[in-house]
Simulated assay, not measured.
Amino acid sequence: MVRIESKRGMFALMMAHCAGMLDLVALPIWVGTLIAYYQFDPQEAGGLATLFLIGAAGASIFFAPRFNRVHVKLAAVIGFALAALSFVIAGMNTSFPVLAGLHFIGGLAAGTALSVTHGTMGHAINPHRVFGFAGLAIGIFGVIFLGGTPGAIQQFGGQSMFYVMAGVMLLATLACLLFFPKPTKPVPFDNFDQIKHLPPLGKPVWFCMVGVALLAMTQAMTLSFYERIGLERGFSRDMVTMALVIYGIVTIFPAPLAALLQNKVSVTAIIAFGPIFQAIFALLTTQTHHYSVFAFAGPMMAFTILFVHTFAFGLLARLDPTGRAVAGTPAMLMVGAAVAPFISGTIVKFIGFEAIGYACCIIVAVQVYLFSQTRKAVLAGETNIPVAKLATSDRRPAI
């Protein structure tokens, strides 16, 4: 039996995380290709990406509360297989209505698989560490994807983007079929009636979950038009591609760094104040006309979300040991990211790229409030986690 902490189990979860979180890496190329090669306007291109994310969010919202009642390996395998099929068919079509339907179906399938993947991670001995390694995997994947896909699209056409994404989903399908692991940590109930009548999630959990959703929304609003912003600023396609490669390289570091710092920094302080950097980098990305600033700020947006979310994931796993909260990770990320491309596309269509940065600042202010409420509840002892477990390495309270 494959366990989460085994090499095979970690490999399957890392592959599944990369495929399920494909949008985190692919959004700038995804939206940019739909505009450049399919001749959709920014609103339409953003809308197609939004449909995929809405499907993923809807699937996660449905399956997260039922995580302990489904066959997780079967759900992961079927989900990624259907997502791969959806992208293959999308590569054969150019009609907006057909692509819209396929994006939604693909999102439903990928969201189902990702939901059970994250729920399984939550039942590891150390969920924070496992999620950190998954973040490292998506960073390496980002370098490969962002470094190779633009060239393939230029050589073979826009449809090749969908075939590349289908290939990613297919690899995840095979990895899950062969090595998807069993939970390591025992689930804290022993009969179906207990599973069926679990207590509702507390307010600190919900504050944190909504905060993560807005974290993803801010990221996606900027990232989905990162490529187009660069081209509109007059940077060459090679320069923009290099910025995307830097973006991919930067994403390698935040999750493993967060795993190393797990017991050395205040978890609640990271989630409460980390999002402020999102606002700073969003403004820099959308306002600058200097390539060096553009190539720095975009990747640092990714660094921020991956670093902060790793801590949030570990905290949620401890706030809710049943695994329902972390199984809802795709819902948090996708609900936030789902509306982002459409909102950004609308803002760009009627106002301009600069307005995206201002909108992100407003969303970050709400994030800081929500995460601060979770922090306040933890420090006040209103959760089932002892404050000492969230302390810094010298055991002072997490402040």
Rank of each mutant, 00 (worst) to 15 (best):
22 L>F: 04
37 Y>A: 07
124 A>I: 10
84 A>D: 01
47 G>E: 06
55 G>I: 07
98 V>E: 08
104 F>Y: 00
37 Y>L: 03
18 C>K: 00
87 F>Q: 11
41 D>L: 01
69 R>L: 15
64 A>S: 15
43 Q>A: 14
24 L>N: 11
16 A>T: 00
96 F>P: 00
16 A>F: 00
39 Q>F: 01
101 G>T: 05
112 T>R: 02
120 T>V: 15
59 A>F: 01
44 E>Y: 00
43 Q>M: 12
39 Q>A: 06
38 Y>S: 07
66 R>C: 04
112 T>C: 07
48 L>T: 01
86 S>R: 08
25 V>K: 02
54 I>N: 01
43 Q>N: 04
53 L>A: 14
118 H>R: 11
112 T>N: 03
37 Y>S: 09
66 R>S: 05
81 A>K: 07
28 P>H: 11
69 R>I: 10
14 M>F: 03
90 A>L: 10
31 V>L: 06
17 H>M: 03
69 R>C: 10
93 N>P: 02
77 V>E: 12
53 L>T: 12
56 A>N: 11
59 A>K: 05
25 V>Q: 03
86 S>H: 09
73 K>F: 12
40 F>W: 02
47 G>W: 05
71 H>W: 15
45 A>W: 06
88 V>I: 15
114 L>V: 02
86 S>L: 08
93 N>L: 08
100 A>V: 10
59 A>Q: 07
34 L>G: 13
80 F>V: 14
129 R>Y: 13
82 L>I: 13
69 R>Q: 15
68 N>D: 15
123 H>C: 06
119 G>L: 11
69 R>W: 09
71 H>N: 15
126 N>K: 04
103 H>R: 11
76 A>M: 09
25 V>C: 03
74 L>T: 15
115 S>W: 02
41 D>H: 04
59 A>T: 01
61 I>S: 12
123 H>W: 05
66 R>H: 11
124 A>D: 13
105 I>D: 02
26 A>Q: 04
29 I>R: 04
34 L>F: 11
70 V>Q: 02
79 G>K: 08
112 T>S: 07
13 L>E: 12
84 A>N: 00
16 A>D: 01
108 L>M: 08
63 F>K: 06
126 N>R: 06
109 A>H: 05
59 A>L: 05
